[in-house]
Amino acid sequence: MLADAWIVMLKEWREVLFRGMGMRGSIGFFGLVVLVFGVAIPARSGSLWVTVPWSALTAAWLPLMLVMAVVADSFAGERERHTLETLLASRLSDGAILLGKVAAAVVFAWGMLLLVAAMSLVTVNVVVPRAQPWLHPLLWRWEEAFGVIVLGLLVTVLCATIGVMVSLKSETVRQANLRLSMGLILFFPAIMLLFVGVYSVMPADVQIVVLDSVQTWRPGPVLFVITLVLTAIDGLLIWLSSRLFVRNRLILD
């Protein structure tokens, strides 16, 4: 199944990422993203980019945006361009098709995030003047690195799975895009409410630890909770999307 999902993912990249915007358009766009998020913003922030905790977490919404850019096309595009039925009539399993579509968005967005993150560290180290930069490189602490790499992946999977599900249930790419942008308006408040909700049901002594770690900028315990919650949500969404993908109903929807 993984090999098949890989084949679907590569097709998706080729078709949507490169041909969708035209080769020059896509390269220009990716280049711009790396320049803005990997060079311009970290250069402005200087050493704050690595010393102020959480700042790296602002990168969490980069994958969200990147996923949004490609995911609406996943199923609605195949439906709109009349290729879905032929894909469904092939030997590809349900899992391979679904996983390939999700992976196409996840690997692209998360890959870009990692590229931008690495680029930003290079930028910061280049632009901040100091003695012996080679011996004391400006780096994130493990918490921020964990935030970018692990939480970045979890957020990407979250967005991609939701996006693929919306696309699966949409008639056209335009409709999928509209639904996703409306969802986005509600996304951040919903996440906030979720964490407030999780926080409020914690036992009082755990709440104290969490609050303390936030106030003292020691994000370890908070990261732990966020990771746990996100992993659970991701698992749930992946399960849900596999339930939503009913091959012998897809051409009806």
């Binding site: 097709k11 078709e15 969708g20 009349h82």
Partner: peptide
Amino acid sequence: ASGALMEHSGLYERLSAWENLEFFARVW
């Protein structure tokens, strides 16, 4: 074990003929 040409050609118009056949050859 089957091949199918459905109501629509099901070809990816933004891919070349070669890429289309190659994708399905990989799929199979």
